[in-house]
Nucleic acid binder design. Structure first.
Lengths: 140, 140
DNA sequence: AATTTTAGTCAGTTTAACTGACCAAAATTA
DNA sequence: TAATTTTGGTCAGTTAAACTGACTAAAATT
């Protein structure tokens, strides 16, 4: 029921960004990375994150986040270490391979966004981002 | 890997719209309607649509679209009639119940969007929609 | 008339979410 | 300090929504 025009626009643009990213990643040998892994790269703290905190940031259950994290760990993008301050918890950080992937993904997205920026002009694009942010803030 | 800032904005806004819509729909007795049904309401032609054409508009397989259409038919939102011009095909149109749902959904989304409009101002909101459209068009 | 394409279904699979039940460590309370 | 509750995480099973492959029958093409 995406019946709002603006909603359709938002979805269409977001889809094209994600599709582009994963097409490019696949070309560069990262076919194993799926859209749902993205949230982890987005929210992972430099100093290490717990599954629970990632789950809550990403708005999903800890079980689901646990599965995602496990996949990235097994693929060599994440490193798990026990939390020194809490015997129940584990901390995850990016491996060098993970850092590299993050950089590549950012590069791909930046160059994709550049097309958008060119389509509307630099000024307008920066304004657009401000407006989107205001809209997000209006709902909290 | 939603590593573009703008991408994060787009997703966040779209998610909030969809979440709001289905929360409101559920309150009004339409809990059986899921986000994936939305594409059908969006693309369904006044004069009737075929599964194949809906599938291609929505960018999914005919098998998947067939399942969605079957659900809405069973729930009484869609009517299936044989295509008079093609013995293989069926045409789907909204039932009165389907029309009503569509109207309700539009209303819910319009009032949700109004908050966005208020957050940035009418002028800006209209500009924003223009910019988004230009960005979409830049990718085709 | 024979062949190929198209509309749609059936059957089975995959992915990414979910819930519920559980364990062990930590924090809180009596 | 002992007992209880909360918290971090896993295991097991389920669900939703997509997918592929194989198929039928009607239509279009050769």
């Amino acid at each position: 029921m995406s019946e709002s025009n603006t909603g359709v626009y938002l979805r269409q643009l977001y889809d094209s960004l994600v599709t582009n990213l994963h097409q490019e990643l696949a070309l560069q040998g990262y076919a194993e990375i799926t859209p749902s892994h993205g949230l982890i790269f987005q929210y992972l703290d430099e100093k290490g994150s717990r599954i629970t905190s990632l789950a809550s940031l990403a708005g999903m259950t800890k079980q689901s986040m646990s599965a995602l994290v496990y996949q990235l760990e097994n693929l060599g993008y994440l490193n798990r270490t026990p939390d020194p301050d809490d015997g129940r918890a584990a901390l995850f950080i990016l491996t060098p391979k993970g850092e590299q992937l993050k950089k590549i993904a950012q590069k791909i997205n930046r160059s994709f966004e550049q097309r958008w920026e060119e389509a509307v002009g630099v000024e307008n694009y920066s304004l657009l981002r401000e407006l989107l942010l205001k809209m997000i803030e209006s709902g909290s």
